[in-house]
């Protein structure tokens, strides 16, 4: 009932939706960067959408299945192969024991999510299995996966006889990822104003909204640093530390902009210029160094509406997948 790491990737960690309720002690929630894609991977294998997945960065680990499993990968496309043969993204597939899952090249996105039916057996800390790298807790011994680690599944696959002697089998339906029928520019992130938005002089507001910004190399699960653009504020008042959140865009001295991501600290003292809306955080999470982004101002109403739409899409997908999966496995 396990997955063995044959070769370690750059940063692969077990993440669920995050550890909430402890930020008053400075314990950041961590959790998946792209919760939408993690939900899709879970839904494809018939899990609860919030179940823990392994979040992969490229180069990702090489995995050996020591038991048969029903698997799905969503999010970034790293050209997954089973025993050297490509498997399509957004499909569930069954793998036999002794199969090797490997990722060849990153063609789209920054983070992929690996789910297995039944979920992974992981360390729970304060109500969540998300890996908190800073505290060294949760997930797999509080750290990223290393060579020879053995991640156990929570349940044995009951349907492995379907595989018979085959090494793997791709299930014949594909998850529809398109939750928003209105097509938007992929690099356009909607924001709502932060509390210190009006600190920016008008010219700087225009500059912020009309400039294509680039994600620089100093970007990780904690945050993305953007290239400097000239931004001027009406005041240099010091702010006493207060809460920040996933998606907060902070303005640092000298016009440096930082987007706070899943491993952000709980509080900060820099001006909060804007907040990326929740429905666009999955898109932000799939961006990588060198990608350009544009911010587009919207309001709370639109932000909430889009999040509800995204959730509804997942719910529909969940019931469709559940139905097809039951039909397939019991036939």
């Amino acid at each position: 009932m396990s997955l063995r790491i044959v070769k370690a990737g750059v940063l692969d960690s077990i993440q669920d939706r995050g550890r909430y309720g402890w930020q008053y002690l400075g314990i950041n929630p961590a959790g998946t960067m792209d919760s939408f894609s993690a939900s899709i991977a879970n839904i494809l294998v018939g899990n609860n959408p919030d179940e823990a997945t392994i979040e992969l960065h490229f180069p990702a680990s090489i995995f050996l299945f020591e038991r048969p499993a029903l698997v799905a990968i969503s999010g970034a496309d790293f050209s997954a192969t089973i025993n050297g043969e490509p498997v399509p993204a957004s499909h569930a597939f069954m793998v036999n024991k002794n199969s090797v899952l490997q990722f060849q090249e990153p063609t789209k996105g920054a983070r992929a999510y690996l789910a297995v039916k039944g979920g992974f057996l992981a360390d729970t800390w304060l109500g969540s299995v998300s890996t908190n790298l800073k505290a060294g807790m949760g997930g797999y011994q509080g750290r990223g996966l290393r060579k020879n680690d053995q991640v156990f599944f929570r349940e044995d696959l009951k349907y492995s006889t379907i595989l018979s002697q085959k090494e793997y089998m791709i299930l014949p339906w594909k998850a529809d990822l398109n939750w928003n029928s209105k097509t938007e520019y992929a690099n356009e992130l909607f924001i709502i104003p932060g509390h210190e938005w009006d600190w920016l002089i008008n010219e700087s507001k225009n500059n912020f909204l009309n400039t294509s910004l680039t994600i620089t190399q100093q970007s990780d699960r904690m945050g993305y640093r953007l290239n400097n653009i000239p931004l001027r504020t009406l005041t240099n008042e010091e702010i006493v530390s207060s809460a920040v959140s996933f998606g907060t865009v902070q303005l640092l001295p000298g016009g440096r902009l930082i987007i706070l991501m899943a491993d952000h600290q709980t509080t900060g003292g820099y001006p909060r210029i804007a907040h990326i809306i929740s429905a666009h955080l999955p898109g932000a999470a799939q961006m990588k160094t060198g990608d350009s982004i544009r911010f587009k101002m919207t309001d709370s109403k639109t932000a909430e509406g889009l999040l509800i739409k995204q959730q509804q899409h997942l719910l529909q997908l969940q019931s469709a997948c559940k139905f097809r999966l039951e039909e397939y496995l019991n036939s």
Partner: peptide, 21 residues
């Protein structure tokens, strides 16, 4: 309600907008 962050002179409340709506 999802989480609370008290700071020097502010209290922030995290919530689940989908659940609330």
């Amino acid at each position: 309600m999802v989480d609370l962050i008290p700071a020097y002179s502010s209290l922030s409340i995290y919530y689940d907008p989908v659940k609330l709506r």
